[in-house]
Design a protein around this nucleic acid. Structure first.
Lengths: 353, 353
DNA sequence: CCGGGTCATGTTCGCGTTAACAATGTGCGC
DNA sequence: GCGCACATTGTTAACGCGAACATGACCCGG
């Protein structure tokens, strides 16, 4: 005994949503014509197009994406694979990706990686593939998962962001360059050498930054102190710094990210060392907080939003027909000098060229 | 002249993926039986079930979610609406939500809010509704968007996380209690009063925390210094602290989140004030870095993961038939005492009961 | 030995959309 | 004045799946 007289504009869920046939009936055309109007097909008379448009608004018609996906075989959904997005970098990239995806008319479905093994990566790909995503952006700065990327079926467009897999197109920041910038900044201030706290070896960025640091030193024949390693957290930066302090003295410290640098600042402070009076510190990332550490941190700035957008561009390029390339678009990082770096102690007025 | 002899297990995208009919053919049953096996229908003979399962693995069969959605009218996709997820809180919640959603067999589609107005909220809801999401979790600690939540059509289950809309079920942390904890901790140490740096007034949390702070003071008849306001960023915390220092002296400072507290620590340091020797500081959130600020920050801990899970539970409850309630599940915050708080200066051995 | 009930399975239809193809109308050249 | 090209619109058939209904085999009691 449902009331058939209910207003068609009734949106509160009590009546079924309007479908294409309803619009067609109201506009006095066939459902095919409605479809044509929606998809911008050229051969529809202007007056008809107008009538259909009116009917659509009158009924608050929304195309059913499931039906669409079923018949075309492709959805308007992009998949994003990310590690536990708690670090500043991945989060910023995710945010930028979502933004540009929406601008291009795509929805974004996310899949967190529970672990770092190949299995969880393929699971995530399967999970997204089951949703008929039309492409995948993988924010996986982790070496093992990057390797797994090479093995995803070629049928589905995929792009890596922040990382370097030889197998798929990639958008990333030049980590090596950033590390050189940081190290050379310290050397330029007059420090004899620079101690490095690296990130976990199984992430892509960590060895790259370490390599940049090492090359900057060896290029001018400076000794390379042995590397301490953290896991990106402030806690690990703190612990690594304490190990270094127990080992020998230092005047310059390059830490592989800002959070670990924060831990380093605390350890130095607790050891009675002044930054930058006794020790200079440089970080990496330029997280928003870095400018407000005590002291404000000199660091390497990565434009994550830019990287995210670039990744989207690469993906769309692939979706729109290009075969999977191995293109690699790199973004240039920049050094942001703040108050955590200065000349080494007892270096009165050394004049550089 | 395509080769019909291609192996059915060919997954590389060159042949069409297996569908239910293929599985049925291989197992020697009808597609309906395959469907029954997939959906766990009881009346399938054990041997048949086994044959079908084998056929499914042999063909690497994946159900087509679009077809499923089309015929059942409901997808297995949840929508998450979030503000630009750069703050620690929203990110953690998003992560927790994704995790528990996947565990319950749901995919998660995200929609960033470009602005804070009602319009962008309804746009986001529309955007998700067009994907036939089966429910929405809104991480909108912003007052204006929360108000807009009340106006989304009743047809679609929705839950608010971190916030308080009278209209929809909500999972949140007791902000008021957290602020009281923080303020009373400082008062308990012997501080005569506490200065407050609040968050933006149009976010839900900010006035709640301010109210907790105010009540803690007025309950024991202490003066309530005028409130400075920031926008959650370290920069604004720094600026607010400088305004306070220019105004009058203080011994205790309660800052509405950790990032602003970081800015406060820097401003105090630069003003030559020692924390906690001269001024005690308490933050809010317990971001991972807070333990490594200089000095390590006493703060109020919110269990964001717990809140995210709770939100999911509320949503599933609603999806599985319950009408939209106005249930509100609150999580209890806790104080984490670190090195940024101490007795006020010139308070030698005050004995409290 | 036969009818009714139950279990296991198959047949058929429809979800809302796009697309290939068919059908209509309209104008223009010869 | 007739036919042909083109513009516009309609008809119909998929897409892959789930559910209502139909079918057939089998068991048990009378």
């Amino acid at each position: 005994m449902a009331d058939p007289g209910t207003l068609p504009s009734d949106l509160d869920g009590s009546t079924r949503a309007a479908v294409m046939a309803d619009v067609a009936r109201l506009a006095g055309v066939s459902h095919t014509t409605v479809s044509r109007v929606i998809n911008g097909h050229p051969s529809v008379r202007e007056s008809t197009r107008h009538r259909v448009r009116q009917a659509m608004t009158a009924l608050a018609y929304r195309p059913n994406s499931a039906a669409r996906t079923l018949v075309t075989g492709r959805s308007r959904v992009l998949g994003v694979i990310c590690m536990d997005p708690t670090y500043y970098g991945p989060v910023s990239v995710l945010s930028a990706v979502e933004r540009s995806a929406r601008q291009s008319g795509y929805a974004v479905s996310i899949a967190n990686l529970p672990g770092l093994d190949r299995r969880s990566l393929t699971d995530a790909v399967d999970f997204l593939a089951a949703q008929a995503v039309v492409g995948i952006i993988a924010i996986t700065p982790h070496a093992a998962t990057m390797a797994a990327l090479a093995h995803v079926p070629a049928g589905i467009p995929i792009v890596a962001v922040e990382g370097c897999s030889g197998a798929v197109p990639t958008a990333a920041v030049d980590q090596y360059l950033g590390a050189r910038l940081a190290t050379e900044h310290l050397l330029g201030l007059g420090h004899r050498t620079v101690v490095h706290i690296a990130g976990p070896a199984d992430w892509y960025e960590a060895p790259e930054r370490e390599r940049g640091w090492r090359d900057a030193l060896t290029d001018i024949a400076r000794p390379t102190p042995s590397v301490e390693r953290g896991d990106w957290t402030a806690a690990s930066g703190y612990a690594a710094t304490r190990r270094i302090l127990a080992r020998d003295r230092l005047t310059a410290l390059f830490v592989a990210n800002d959070q670990m640098a924060l831990g380093a600042l605390l350890a130095l402070h607790q050891a009675g060392l002044d930054v930058p009076g006794d020790v200079s510190v440089v970080g990496f990332d330029d997280a928003p907080e870095a400018a407000y550490y005590t002291p404000p941190l000199t660091t390497v700035r990565q434009d994550f939003a830019e990287v995210g957008r670039t990744g989207m561009d690469l993906l769309l390029e692939q979706i729109e027909g290009a075969a999977r390339s191995t293109r690699r678009v790199i973004t240039i990082p920049g050094l942001v000098v703040r108050a955590s770096t200065a000349r080494p102690p007892n270096d009165q007025g050394r004049h550089t060229a």
